[in-house]
Design a protein around this nucleic acid. Structure first.
Lengths: 334, 334
DNA sequence: CTGAAAGCGCTTACAG
DNA sequence: CTGAAAGCGCTTACAG
């Protein structure tokens, strides 16, 4: 494999000049550039990124940290990655998915050494050990999601409070008052979005003087079905449910049907935080509040890039609400 | 950030000795090791992987190439990644998901320079430009999937011929003879597994003297539904279908139901190449042949590691069939 | 506009 | 068992 030195020798210039041509970092006369470019072509030269990284301290590679070994990577989650990675490419970066856990330990590998210029965090918990670790190590990062107090940190996140309010309003406009909230359980992973939706739900119900009903369900299709099957029997007074658990949503619908509960005639179901792909799994298709994954992936990468390109600038902090997509699972209260 | 030199100074040894301690590459007396380790602790030293990579030519980082921008990353596909990445960790490597397209161009970045030690290819096409590019550039790689003629290349793949035979046998044992094959269309992406399943289907039908029916369907839930709705009308003679398109499968089932076609009473549906997660989306749950994603992820990484650790050894070539999982969507021919 | 040279942080024969 | 030193392939002030 040809090195810059090889190219320099062949073109009879210094290695510095080759570097200038390769990176466009300084003016070079056309004649010289020509010679260098020809030599590169003849030798099939491509710059060694490791050498460049060591000398410059940058790689233009960034990493998306998603704990795939601990948290299921849903179709909706993939939209964040896809969009962020496309955006990265547009801006001249690479973005790879680094499947490290939330154990801080492994972050060190990234932290130290400039293998990656910065990281994008997903599945952020209210108290997220990764955030402290990255800050500690001085690794530039941005969050998709946010911690309890993200004060001075760059993030983009779903505006979950607004989204929950819209969910409730949609159902109330149809006459519903006894509205449950179904969420994933939280044994150890205090997911920011789930927690904020939960709080917003409780607050809204209290304001309305309506009794809150919070139900937990594992993030699995089969668990959704079991919940659907027993739902009416256990909660006869409920007429609507806000389901924040897209893995369980299709199963929940088939479980309801199996128990003879029709949606929306007997129960309105509104899926909070999902995508067309999941919503189309059921019949009728789910009415849902769409997770702005494509938007947040792009904005999230931009937030990171801003951090990398001007560390002094105030951090980006953006909230994007889910938008309502009509399906066939909500209707007027019976 | 402390460097090895800093540690060496503090421990009053040479930088070489520090390297030996850090990497365990040579014997060091206990006393010396103690001094070095203490200095490392005091300075919070962590080895810079870029420096190490440049000097040694290795990073112990590997990449899974999956063209997420071109091909949907399904839940089942994620199982490959998860399992391969866990296996990598067990063997002391990192595995990242690099979302490059099938454009060869971008492979160069990986190829050159030893940012990654090797790559694992997914979504392999019968004629895959990435394979030639990697071979050209001398990048160690292994495939999950395989090209038309993988002769001397390392791969692990689904034994699609055997899986198709089992699918047909299962249905035939129930009395079916008019069995369709539903696959994704192939405008540009000649996916090896789909193509091999197709061939195996045609061959088997010919052997039986039964008329083959191949139907294509885009890999989207909604397209599955449309197909389900019109299925009976368009194909009245069929009594069973092998569905190799898990994205469309749930929609296909709801489409059938909407058209008044009951499964399995009126039509047996066998999903080929799926996982419990997708199968549980419908009611009854799909009967399916399970994609051995966890197995192939692990074996695939092992194939790559074998390549990295002993390039001379004969390449791993392993086929694993799908295994049958009973659900509720196949039954005796009416 | 171009070059000589130091330096990025390690690894690894080679000596002793 | 330990060290001095070359070298991995680049980038980037600094001079000219």
């Amino acid at each position: 494999m040809a090195t810059m030195q090889d190219v320099a020798n062949r073109a009879q210039v210094s290695i510095a000049t080759v570097s200038f041509v390769v990176n466009g970092t300084k003016r070079v006369t056309d004649a010289t550039r020509e010679r260098v470019e020809q030599a590169m072509r003849e030798l099939g030269f491509r710059r060694n990124p490791v050498g460049a990284a060591l000398a410059s301290g940058r790689t233009r590679i960034t990493a998306l940290l998603f704990p795939v070994l601990e948290r299921p990577l849903s179709h909706t989650a993939v939209t964040f990655f896809t969009s962020a990675s496309r955006r990265a490419r547009e801006r001249g970066y690479d973005l790879v998915l680094w499947p490290i856990g939330t154990d801080i330990e492994h972050i060190d590998l990234l932290a130290r050494g400039g293998l990656v210029d910065g990281v994008l965090l997903m599945e952020v918990q209210l108290e997220d050990p990764r955030v402290a670790a990255l800050a500690d190590q001085n690794v530039p990062f941005a969050m998709i999601g946010r911690t309890e107090d993200p004060s001075a940190l760059p993030y983009v996140d779903i505006d979950m409070a607004a989204s929950m309010r819209e969910a409730l309003r949609r159902l109330e406009d149809l006459g519903h008052r006894d509205i449950a909230f179904v969420r994933s359980p939280n044994p150890t992973y205090n997911h920011g979005a789930v927690s904020r939706a939960h709080d917003a739900y409780l607050k809204a119900m209290e304001e309305r003087g309506a009794p809150p009903t919070v139900i937990t369900c594992e993030e699995l299709p089969h668990e959704g079905r079991l919940l659907g099957e027993r739902f009416a029997a256990e909660h006869p007074a409920l007429t609507a449910v806000i389901l924040m658990n897209e893995h369980a949503a299709p199963g929940f619908m088939t479980g309801l049907a199996r128990a003879g509960v029709r949606a929306p005639a007997d129960l309105s179901v509104l899926s909070l935080g999902s995508s067309a792909y999941m919503a189309e799994m059921t019949d009728p298709p789910l009415t849902y509040l769409r997770t702005p994954g494509p938007e947040l992936g792009e904005l999230g990468f931009d937030a990171l890039a801003a951090r990398l390109e001007d560390p002094e600038r105030a951090p980006t902090q953006t909230l994007v609400p889910c938008d309502f997509v009509a399906g066939g699972t909500i209707g007027p209260r019976a």
